[in-house]
């Protein structure tokens, strides 16, 4: 092991290392998630973040060196956000058919998601950067990270809060809707899409195909509305 310190310092500084570690961690986490039948609690993003954080901690690597490599993956958030236009366009028939319920539920659900997060966070006395990072938590992660950056939150914190929101929504939605005896799959799906973005949408698809389609529409429309709402509300509330 005589050459290992030199080898380690090469590896720790090379962007290739962290790009590869990120891909392998996510691949491993995806296999685990599949083995656990896509349980929301074994979310691949949460699991791979934990794996990578442990690797960084064990190797004494700071986040900046890690990001040198991981930025190539991070960059793809932008084009991925733009490509959300495709499923939205493909679902235009659905949106047109039920325009009134969809628009009303979107405006009400999206406003409650943002307002309740900010008001509760203020009531709990959380620091301002945390409140700002919390505000877009119901929006799909690439858009939420962009909103957080734009209003002065902590993008990394927003990423984790968004994922936790998705996991909470995905775990709660079915028992909550059954408890309230709501049987309309369109309403159930749309609500979880607005409140818990992609992770909620994935859960809706597992339960019912119609619920999944409406959840996808709710998620995409909410991404558009929240990026208007949060900057407006932030300048007004905080």
């Amino acid at each position: 092991m005589s050459g290992s310190p030199a080898l380690w310092s090469y590896l720790a500084a090379a962007p290739l290392t962290w790009l590869t570690v990120t891909l392998l961690a996510f691949l491993g986490a995806s296999i685990l998630s599949r083995a656990l039948r896509h349980s929301p609690l074994a979310n691949p993003v949460l699991v791979s973040v934990c794996i990578i954080a442990t690797v960084l901690w064990l190797g004494g690597t700071d986040y900046d060196s890690y990001f040198e490599g991981a930025q190539f993956i991070h960059f793809l958030l932008g084009p991925a956000t733009v490509s959300l236009a495709a499923p939205l366009f493909d679902n235009r028939g659905t949106i047109r058919r039920l325009a009134a319920p969809i628009l009303l539920a979107l405006i009400v659900g999206s406003s409650v998601a943002v307002l309740s997060a900010v008001a509760l966070a203020q009531a709990f006395g959380l620091p301002e950067p945390v409140i700002l990072s919390l505000s877009p938590k119901s929006t799909t992660a690439p858009v939420a990270i962009g909103i957080s950056e734009a209003v002065g939150g902590i993008p990394g914190l927003t990423a984790v809060l968004v994922i936790l929101t998705g996991v909470i929504g995905a775990v709660i939605v079915t028992p909550l809707m059954n408890l309230l005896r709501i049987r309309d799959w369109r309403a159930r799906g749309f609500a979880v899409g607005v409140a818990a973005h992609g992770i909620g949408t994935a859960r809706a698809f597992q339960v019912n195909e119609t619920a999944g389609a409406y959840a996808g529409v709710g998620m995409a429309l909410n991404a558009l509305l929240t990026s208007l709402l949060v900057p407006l509300l932030v300048s007004w509330l905080i």
């Binding site: 993003v45 973040v49 901690w57 993956i73 991070h74 495709a86």
Partner: peptide
Amino acid sequence: AAITLANLSLFFVPAGVGVVA
């Protein structure tokens, strides 16, 4: 779009790791 959206969760891992900071 189908490819980027199917792998969407991978893209927010680097930002998520940022929370360790």
